[in-house]
């Protein structure tokens, strides 16, 4: 079968697909949880600075990944 399936390429797609394709949504979810999850709003009804920093770090990483992907497409690397 190795003649018909490029196992190594497939393994890479699966591995990095999981890291990026499942990892980024998870990061985004952690950001959402940090901003709006249980206990996010303190007694004064505001989201604490620490939680905001965590959330925007998560969103920032996701945005960076998207920008990186666009650059990658533009560079003709696909």
């Amino acid at each position: 079968m190795s003649e018909f399936i490029e196992w190594q390429a497939l393994g890479n797609v699966l591995l990095f697909g999981l890291i990026v394709g499942a990892g980024l949504p998870t990061l985004f979810a952690l950001g959402v949880r940090s901003l709006a999850g249980p206990g996010a709003r303190g007694e004064d009804g505001q989201v604490s600075l620490g939680r905001k920093v965590v959330a925007y770090a998560c969103f920032g990483a996701v945005v960076l990944a998207v920008v990186g992907a666009v650059a990658y497409i533009a560079a003709g690397g696909h």
């Binding site: 697909g17 394709g21 497409i73």
Partner: peptide, 21 residues
């Protein structure tokens, strides 16, 4: 959101590794 991110990642990675899907 999870579905589209998965799509984007698998499409771009598969062409990167030369195994176009």
């Amino acid at each position: 959101m999870a579905a589209e991110t998965s799509s984007a990642a698998v499409i771009l990675l598969s062409s990167h590794f030369g195994y176009s899907l």
